[in-house]
Amino acid sequence: MVQVTLRVNGKEAELDLPGRALLIHALRDHLRLTGSHIGCDTSQCGACTVHVDGKAIKSCAMLAAEADGCEVTTIEGLGSDAALHPMQEAFRQHHGLQCGYCTPGMIMLALDMVARHGQLDEPTVREELDGNLCRCTGYQNIVSAILAGADAMAHV
């Protein structure tokens, strides 16, 4: 077993995990943060995307032990019950989801794009959606939502 200490959405968490535990399992099964999803078993779909020390990563392709001492942000760390985060609100406004399974990963990736680029343009968004799959929307509304969300964040 490995002792893993994380800060998840601002809260300290101490976990005793098998060495092979993935970060996604630590979040979902041990911390009961089930917003991050497991969509594939091949690191292709991006539904498990969370931030580790401010960077978007696929939590199915990272051992929980590797995140020891790190700051982790999941979809549950955004917004509040009273008000959605501007990026979440943009997905709602632009109908950037249908079944919603890929949405937490899409939003965490979108926030990473904003963090690195600030203002976004459509080619950048389409290129950087490379690692996140959606089987409902055809991506058009996701692209619109991310552009609008980035815009809203710049004007907060």
Partner: peptide, 9 residues
């Protein structure tokens, strides 16, 4: 290489 998330790790 890969995608954004892969390039971060």
């Amino acid at each position: 290489i890969g995608d954004v998330q892969v390039r971060h790790r």
